[in-house]
């Protein structure tokens, strides 16, 4: 379970997160919705360990581990996955090589044996097929020349391969057409289960039609101002943040 208590963080001296309290029990999917600048992406970066954010107070633990004290790779090894809002292009790094290196790094962290190139390809092809993607994706450099939709699919493929127990989806729906949105949602729903939790960060309710959350939280001004069931997302869509949060 992910437990965030009184988390405050700033960038360049500017407070962004002003006391986040949030619990995601194992097996649940929670959505965080909020207007631009409310701190949604900062929360996802702070949880996954990106540099440049000063944690000024509070805590974040995952299954009892002090997340904030861990290196990003340790968090990933412990089952935390961040699906990037803007997946990074890596010219000169082949996608297959990247994915296998990541899979083996996480396996190593878990004390599992590494898999060789053949085993990896077999695994990757199975996942790619399940996600209705093209094998071609493996041959290209990581995200280089990928369309917005392809980048997001590549994120979902990484998630499927790394099999995290906590997936943070940072506006994974942005820039996706409806078909791509369904593929991404199917990828997340396929992982749904007793040992999988997810924090779905989104600006729009649309994604939540496909990934139905257990809880919805409204983030505004660096704080969670309201929480509720899936119906809260619909209310936000219909009435706007200002009115619902008021």
């Amino acid at each position: 379970m992910l437990k965030i208590e009184g988390l405050t963080a700033e960038i360049d001296g500017k407070p962004i997160l002003k006391g986040i309290d949030l619990e995601i029990p194992t097996g649940e999917i929670h959505a965080i919705m909020g207007p631009n600048g409310s701190g949604k992406s900062t929360l996802s970066y702070v949880l996954s360990g990106r540099e440049g954010y000063e944690i000024t107070g509070g805590s974040a633990t995952y299954n009892g581990l002090d997340l904030l004290a861990m290196e990003p790779e340790e968090r990933a090894g412990s089952g935390v996955f961040l699906a990037f809002q803007y997946p990074v292009e890596l010219p000169g790094v082949g996608n297959a090589n990247f994915l296998r290196t990541a899979v083996n790094a996480v396996r190593k962290h878990k004390g599992e044996p590494e898999i060789d190139a053949m085993q990896f390809l077999k695994l990757a092809r199975t996942k790619i097929k399940a996600l209705q993607m093209s094998d071609d994706m493996l041959k290209r450099n990581v995200n280089v020349g990928f369309s917005g939709g392809e980048k997001k699919r590549n994120e979902v493929l990484q998630m499927a391969l790394l099999e995290p127990t906590l997936a943070i989806l940072d506006e994974t729906d942005s820039g996706l057409d409806i078909d791509a949105l369904k593929i991404v949602a199917d990828g997340v729903n396929a992982m749904r289960g007793a040992n999988f939790s997810s924090l779905v960060i989104t600006h729009y309710q649309r994604l939540l039609d496909y990934i139905v959350p257990d809880r919805v939280h409204v983030l505004m001004g660096g704080r969670i101002v309201k929480s509720g069931g899936p119906e809260l997302a619909l209310a936000l869509e219909a009435e706007g943040y200002a009115k619902v949060a008021a």
Binding site: G52, E71, E73, L82, A102, A105
Partner: peptide, 14 residues
């Protein structure tokens, strides 16, 4: 730094 973080966020040591 963004590329480095991307790799590390996938579990690859620094």
């Amino acid at each position: 730094e963004a590329q480095l973080f991307y790799l590390r966020a996938r579990g690859i040591p620094a």
